Simulated scan of single mutants.
Amino acid sequence: MKTDNVNLFCDIVNQRSKEHSCAINILLQQQLYGQVISILRQELDSMVRVMFLLSINDLTLREHFISQTLEGIKWSYPNTKKIVTDKQMVDLANEFYGWSFFVYKLGCAFIHLSAMVYYKNSNPFLLLSVSERNDIKKFLHQYHGFPLELELNLENIVPYLDKVFNKVSSNLAYYVENLRQNKHLEEY
C-alpha cells in the first residue's frame, strides 16, 4: 500500500477530528445542541469509514478507497462500481459498538431537516420507538453513567454530549493509528 496516501488520509481524518473537537466546545457554550449532534454524526462518519477500511484485508482494495477519498470520489468497488453505503459502514461498526447505530441515526435526524430539529419546543426522542429510547439510555448509562430513571430528553442528555463525542473521538484516534500501521480489525 502506498504509505504516503495512507498517512495523508489519516492526517485528513485527524485534522477533521480536531476541528470537530473545537466546534463541539463552541457549540456547547452557545447551547446549539442540534449542531453538536450534527458534529457527533460527522465524527462517527469518520470512525465508521476508518473501521470499514480496517475490515478490508486486501490492502490494494483499501488503497483504492483511500485514493477515491483523496480524489474526491464517492467510494465504490473497482470494476463493479458498487457504491459503499453509509449503512454498510454503520452496520460493520455496530457489530463492535452497539451504540454507533444510535449516534448515527440521531445525527442523521439533525443533519437532515426533520421534526427533531424542533428540540427547543418538543422532545425529539419521542420520535424514536420506545425500544430505541431504552437502548440509547442503556448505552448512555453503560458508558457515561446516565441515570436510567431520567427521561430521555435533550435537557437530560446535554451534560453527556461532550462525553459521547469524546468516546467516538478516542475510538476514532485509536483506529486511525491502526490504519496508519496497516493493521486489520481482526488483529485486535
Rank of each mutant, 00 (worst) to 15 (best):
V117W: 00
Q68M: 13
H20R: 14
Y119N: 08
Q68S: 11
L54R: 05
E63Y: 05
I83M: 07
Y119I: 03
T69C: 09
I73M: 05
S38P: 00
I66D: 04
Y104Q: 07
Q30T: 13
S55N: 12
H112L: 12
R49A: 10
P78S: 08
I37D: 05
V36M: 12
E19P: 00
F96R: 11
Y118P: 00
D91L: 06
V13R: 03
G98K: 15
F52I: 03
F52H: 07
Y97L: 09
I24Y: 10
D58F: 09
L32C: 14
I12G: 08
V36S: 10
I24S: 09
L32T: 12
V117A: 03
Y119M: 05
K18S: 14
M51K: 11
V36W: 10
L44E: 09
L61F: 01
G72Y: 01
L32E: 14
W75L: 08
V117Q: 14
R62Q: 15
I83W: 00
N14M: 13
G72R: 03
Y97D: 03
F101S: 06
H64R: 08
L61N: 07
S100L: 10
F96M: 09
S114N: 15
F96W: 11
C22F: 08
M89Y: 00
Q31D: 14
Y119L: 07
L61Y: 02
T80A: 12
M47D: 06
Y33T: 14
A109P: 01
E95Y: 01
P78L: 11
